[in-house]
Design a binder for these strands. Structure first.
Length: 422
DNA sequence: TCTGGGGTCCTAGGACCC
DNA sequence: TCTGGGGTCCTAGGACCC
């Protein structure tokens, strides 16, 4: 029989808020929130008032009148998150970072060096606290699901090790919402069936339940119940898509609006693609309709082409076309509140490959292919702009069609706050 | 009062190929 | 030939996570 794995999930507590309190000691012990219009993160002092991430700033102030809002030091979040990951790497090479502030570790092979999971978990927490100054919670179990649940139970600032012979006892009384993938919608549906705990879910033989959860989630819950989750900790891994969105309140659809917003989004997305040496074949746009007093319905349109795209103009052209086709399908909708662009089906696109004009112009498609002379020209323009921006800043230069300034209400640091490993 | 932005994964239907 | 089944790719929508 194979060795039973030992998996840790390490998760920084109230990360952004904790960093703010670390940087500014006068904030320690106070209810604070990072963000403004929306709470990105709340300190534990604020959470005690009911303030939660994702909440509107207005609502948060109602719950906690003494709440202090602080600006986000996003570079610091990145830096400190990286430093924590470095510490984790001291315990095993098998570290899978899943966001800026959390990671899985497979320490199965490290036990003989550092001791059992309790000891490794405690040592991680001690080092992160002493060397960086941040609280971190750790869960340990024989698989990723269970370790993640354990770290949630351990919060705030705790350590929970699920013993191999105590997994079912640990799991069954917990609320179903702790299962990764069961959110508010599914939770409400389960509650209608009288299912509130993981134990109740595992015991349920309701056939309709499986279809409610979907095959994948059903299998996951089944695996959780039998405790035979097979997912491995896999280090590395790059994002599978790159996207950007812009919410601008209720606006009437116009050519100017679409051109400006799509242009800005395409500029940002294409720039990030090029920076990462990547390009993508599938371009997806999302349009959210604005309905006063109700959550706006959103629709998507996508296009997959033969070639991977990373030039600003090509991305903007395709995206604009998709937005108009989405709008054409809903002629009664005259107001929108959000536009988004995403590029997926990504491939690595070394710069050299694009610099060489190898293809011939395509007659069938108006959009130049990347390797064609026209495509190369577009890439050369982008490359120049990237270079100028790298030297003089993002506002230094841009396409005439891209409205600089009109969508700068949110700082670039905020935009670039990607909750993914770099 | 549906609040921001960047992501992942799943499902279902249709096209197409063998 | 319309008949079966399987696989892959694409598209659209939705739930979820941080």
């Amino acid at each position: 029989m194979a060795v039973r794995p030992t998996i840790l999930h390490a998760d920084l507590d109230a990360f952004y808020a904790s960093v703010e309190q670390l940087l500014d000691p006068s904030l320690r012990g106070l209810p604070i929130a990072v963000g403004g219009g929306v709470v990105l993160a709340a300190s534990y002092e604020a959470k005690r008032f009911g303030v939660a991430g994702g909440m509107s700033g207005h609502r948060a102030r109602q719950l906690c009148p003494s709440l202090r809002f602080v600006g986000g030091h996003f570079r610091e979040y990145m830096r400190l998150g990286d430093e924590v990951m470095t510490i984790l790497g001291d315990f095993t090479p098998f570290v899978q970072r899943i966001s800026i502030d959390e990671a899985f570790l497979d320490v199965t092979g490290s036990l003989h060096l550092f001791g059992p999971a309790e000891v490794i978990g405690a040592e991680i927490r001690r080092r992160v606290r002493e060397e960086i100054g941040l609280p971190i919670s750790v869960g340990a179990a024989s698989n990723k699901h269970l370790a993640k649940i354990a770290s949630q139970v351990a919060k705030p600032d705790g350590l929970v090790v699920v013993p191999p012979d105590g997994e079912v006892d640990f799991l069954h009384p917990l609320p179903v919402g702790l299962v990764w993938g069961i959110g508010p919608v599914t939770q409400a549906k389960l509650a209608e069936r009288g299912i509130r705990t993981i134990g109740e879910l595992a015991a349920s033989t309701d056939g309709a339940l499986r279809s409610l959860l979907g095959a994948a989630l059903g299998a996951k819950v089944g695996g959780l119940a039998r405790n035979d989750d097979q997912r491995r900790v896999r280090p590395g891994g790059r994002a599978g898509s790159v996207g950007s969105q812009s919410a601008f309140g209720r606006r009437e659809v116009s050519e100017e609006l679409v051109r400006e917003v799509v242009g800005g989004l395409a500029d940002r997305v294409a720039g990030r693609l090029r920076k990462g040496g990547r390009a993508g074949r599938t371009i997806t746009v999302r349009v959210r309709f604005a309905v006063p007093g109700a959550p706006g319905r959103s629709i998507t349109r996508s296009h997959t082409g033969p070639d991977a795209v990373c030039t600003t103009l090509t991305l903007a052209e395709v995206a604009e076309r998709l937005v108009w086709s989405a709008l054409a399908d809903h002629p009664s909708e005259r107001h929108i509140s959000l536009l988004a662009i995403s590029v997926s089906n990504l491939v690595d696109q070394p710069v050299l490959q694009l610099e060489l004009p190898v293809g011939e112009p395509t007659a069938a498609d108006e959009t130049p292919r990347p390797g064609s002379p026209a495509g190369s020209a577009r890439w050369a323009v982008d490359h120049s702009i990237d270079a100028v921006r790298a030297k003089f800043g993002k506002g230094a230069v841009g396409y005439a069609r891209v409205a600089l300034g009109s969508h700068r209400d949110v700082p670039d640091e905020f935009r670039e706050l990607v909750e993914k490993p770099p």
